[in-house]
Nucleic acid binder design. Structure first.
Lengths: 342, 342
DNA sequence: TTGAAAGCGCTAACAA
DNA sequence: TTGTTAGCGCTTTCAA
């Protein structure tokens, strides 16, 4: 008379196929189905077969959100980057993402736009997702951010810079060394009237400072510094050169905070009939792939971004899987690639 | 004598502060704390105050994984891109990501590397995360992928192309139209001996085909097609021009599948003393920011990538929040930007 | 406005 | 090898 079979139906549900559905169809317990899916050689071939068949028939896709909650392992890695439009970071992210994917991890991407405020909001959002690891471009400057990260207990790899006191792991290089080395390089070429183009960014400032100090220590005239603010474009490189030439026409070497800006300087120089490198040496930063094959080919500071991405992925995965990282602090260095422009 | 207070402790825990901890500290029920955090004006000012204080003191960060499981709303959007090293996609992703973040969503990034196999694995990984929306670069070609996506019930926006049968929403432009228009543009300039450089990619092929057809229909000689495979670099543009010139030295116009390749062609032409555009017209694709300010400035097909990212974010957010999307199929068009190179 | 109960879909822990 | 039980941390539903 009444409905004997009808068990009181659960109130909500996403409607999607669940592991229980699969288990029911295969005639096993949910946990057995779970094993058949995730660790197939923990179950008998017979059960494995039945469950796989059920998965196929239902089109079941495991819910990683639920799995992540139950196991406290999200298989998600978060990456914080200033901006992916700034091409110097793109290779790192691409390689990081690919390496993670091959190991079964997904990448969550966050952009700070070089804003500290934004970075803080981003950090909150990231920690809320409980990722298995966090990739940071640069070292975390704010002590609030450091504290939050430390408190979260999530493995962190800082990159793209060096510090004696990393939060956790570190894969970077020294910006001061770069500034110094580039100054030496240019001075060895007989240059003596230097200018420098930089954007609003802390690491670039450190390269700039080291560059200036080195030049001044050698007894040469001080470096003319042009700040393009947040405009890291070819165009602002062109405009910067115009300003520099108006102020100091005798300038014979310029160190730029990015390849794109350097490209702008080269472009403007050629447009003005200034011989590069004869009259003006130009050095970029980043060694973005295409600058090697331009005419004139750009002399620049090479950073192996791919390598940073790959190593960072390795560290993060190791820690996520409970393995120790043998070398948690790595200086990947840099190299000055001498081409035509200097 | 025995331990009256000690309730049998739960077996596992991530150890982090939970909402219950906050609630206990504030002297309210967990659900009340939840309301105070998420919908503050559903609780009395007094309770709100107490809970906020407890949050501050404990450093509580809500666990979005648990929240997502309970509410079936992950506030996560997944994006599928061929590659972020291919700069034409970068602006779209940047804007998509920023727009999403401002609305409280995070972006999960997946790269296919133009590989179908990889795309399938990626889709599986994405669906398993139950994102609130999926952004696809290009239309989903495989029927298997379409079926999977449809079955998942997740809102999808395909972009960067047009089709009469989108899975769900669509924001794109016509590649055939581009091929045709560029051919018309070049013919109107009096050009007649065409070459075309393309990479291995389905959309580029469609631009190429339309370009050829238009040229041939006009009774002009067939277009020489050079395929650079998967090497979308400035260098391969230079090499392609060398090959083209060897085969057809009379070539007077080249349509390239990307700005970077076009830059390579321009570079090689200048290196060989070929006047651009007098002897050779060059048209790129994408209008990547820096090509406008080079010398010669590149004539190219402008795609408003930012706009696509912003609109896609809007559609996806609307659908995630249960709002209808008034215009689910949008042709954002393109424009040929005439500069110096053609 | 507040709370109790139930459960999202899965896996860890334990037992058989 | 398989299953039972309990719970991950949160929100929905319903009731007060």
């Amino acid at each position: 008379m009444n409905e004997p079979e009808k068990i009181k139906k659960s109130r909500r549900s996403s409607g999607a196929i669940t592991l229980s559905d699969v288990a029911k169809l295969a005639g096993v317990a949910p946990i057995t189905a779970s094993r058949a899916v995730n660790t197939p050689n923990q179950v008998s071939p017979e059960v494995r077969q039945k469950v796989q068949e059920a998965v196929r028939r239902t089109g079941y896709v495991p819910n990683r959100v639920a799995g992540g909650l139950a196991s406290s392992r999200s298989r998600l890695i978060a990456a914080v980057v200033p901006s992916i439009v700034v091409s110097v970071f793109v290779e790192t992210i691409e390689t990081l993402n690919n390496t993670l994917f091959e190991a079964g991890y997904q990448l969550m991407l966050g952009q700070t736009g070089y804003s500290a405020e934004r970075e803080e909001a981003l950090l909150e959002a990231i920690i809320g997702r409980r990722p298995d690891g966090i990739f940071l471009t640069g070292i975390m400057p704010s002590s609030k951010g450091r504290t939050r990260l430390l408190a979260s207990g999530i493995p962190v790899v800082e990159t793209w810079d060096l510090t004696p006191t990393p939060i956790d792991m570190l894969i970077g290089f020294s910006h001061s060394d770069i500034g110094r080395e580039v100054a030496h390089f240019l001075m060895a070429k007989g240059r003596s009237r230097f200018a420098l183009i930089r954007a609003d960014d802390e690491r670039g400032t450190r390269r700039a400072t080291a560059f200036r100090n080195t030049v001044v220590q050698r007894g040469l005239p001080d470096v003319l510094v042009d700040n393009v603010g947040s405009s890291r474009t070819l165009k602002s490189g062109r405009e910067a050169l115009s300003r520099i030439l108006a102020q100091a026409p005798e300038t014979d070497a310029i160190f730029c905070s990015s390849d794109l800006i350097a490209l702008g300087v080269v472009t403007e120089a050629i447009a003005r009939g200034i011989a590069v490198p004869q009259r003006l040496s130009i050095v970029g930063f980043g060694d973005v792939p295409y600058v090697a094959n331009m005419v004139p080919a750009l002399t620049t500071v090479h950073i192996n971004g791919s390598n940073i991405g790959r190593m960072a992925a390795g560290c993060l995965i190791a820690r996520a899987e409970g393995r120790a990282v043998d070398n948690p602090i790595v200086d990947v260095g840099f190299s000055i690639i001498e081409r035509d422009s200097a």
